[in-house]
């Protein structure tokens, strides 16, 4: 660790902590993930490309990423609203509602999937009211969006909430003094302050949704080309003892997750600069 000599830093423990961090990271995350890449390496480039661009696989990307995008958008809008309401307004039961936001974190995904299917299937609590209007949620791509929205909601709320809390009231007062209307203040002063955190929350919720499996298979319908998500295709390949095909698709997903996270972290860096 001599390499990164810490100038002007008297704090101890850099070497051991960074050392352990990298060790543990390698042991739990990096080495296991590399197994994925090595398994895929058994395929030739041509085979790899034809596996990951097969029509059914392409369709699953479309379903997965499309639904994740929709879910992340819904979450961004309602997540910001919820965060705002929770921080700024006082109403009975606010604290309970605040706590409830973390529920999707805590509720196991399989339970969430079964429960959502129970509620939104044509004979479920909500589904029975939607069915006569021709709205089908469970077992359609809409069901996928629903499940993804459920699991992604806390991310937007919990990223935006602290930022709303930190907004300096003087800024708003200043805006008002300068003659801005409330709407103008919101749009010109507050929204730009929230934007980086909204984007981060959006990206987090998107990233989480893309990989989700447990809650979706119960409600998706799993029709090839229509409502089949990419993780399910990995499972399907595995069930046919096609390990290389499975790891090839998994590699693509891994690459996507990694680049998305990289973007998120750049966003956060940018937002910090922006804040200064």
């Amino acid at each position: 660790m001599k390499l990164f000599k810490q100038h002007n830093n008297v704090l101890p423990g850099f070497g051991p902590t960074l050392g352990f961090t990298i060790f543990y990271l390698s042991l739990i995350v990096l080495i296991p993930l590399s197994a994925l890449v090595f398994r895929t390496a058994g395929l030739s480039w041509g085979e790899f490309v034809s596996t990951v661009t097969a029509p059914r696989v392409l369709a699953s990307y479309k379903v997965t990423f499309g639904a994740a995008l929709a879910a992340a958008l819904i979450n961004s809008i309602f997540g910001v609203l919820v965060a705002w309401v929770l921080v700024r307004y006082r109403f009975p039961g606010r604290r309970i509602v605040d706590a409830l936001v973390d529920l999707p974190f805590a509720l196991p995904t399989a339970v969430a999937g079964i429960t959502l299917a129970t509620i939104y299937s044509p004979n479920g609590w909500v589904g029975r009211f939607l069915e006569p209007h021709g709205i089908k949620v469970a077992f359609t791509p809409l069901g996928i969006v629903l499940a993804m929205t459920f699991i992604g909601l806390p991310f937007v709320v919990r990223t935006v909430q602290p930022v709303v809390e930190e907004i300096d009231s003087e800024l708003e007062e200043a805006a008002v003094c300068l003659g801005a209307s409330r709407w103008q203040t919101l749009r010109r002063v507050i929204f730009p302050m929230l934007l980086p955190s909204i984007l981060t929350g959006f990206a987090l919720s998107f990233a989480r949704a893309v990989g989700e499996y447990g809650s979706i298979i119960f409600i998706a319908g799993n029709m090839p080309m229509v409502s089949e998500i990419t993780p399910l295709l990995i499972i399907t390949k595995l069930e046919q003892f096609d390990y290389q095909g499975a790891t090839a698709i998994a590699c693509i997903m891994l690459l996507t997750s990694f680049s998305m996270l990289l973007v998120i972290n750049l966003l956060q860096k940018w937002s910090r600069k922006y804040a200064e």
């Binding site: 119960f218 319908g221 799993n222 029709m223 090839p224 499972i235």
Partner: peptide
């Protein structure tokens, strides 16, 4: 005529 393909018989 198949609207849903579950992954297993029990599903």
């Amino acid at each position: 005529n198949v609207p849903v393909l579950d992954s297993g018989a029990r599903g």
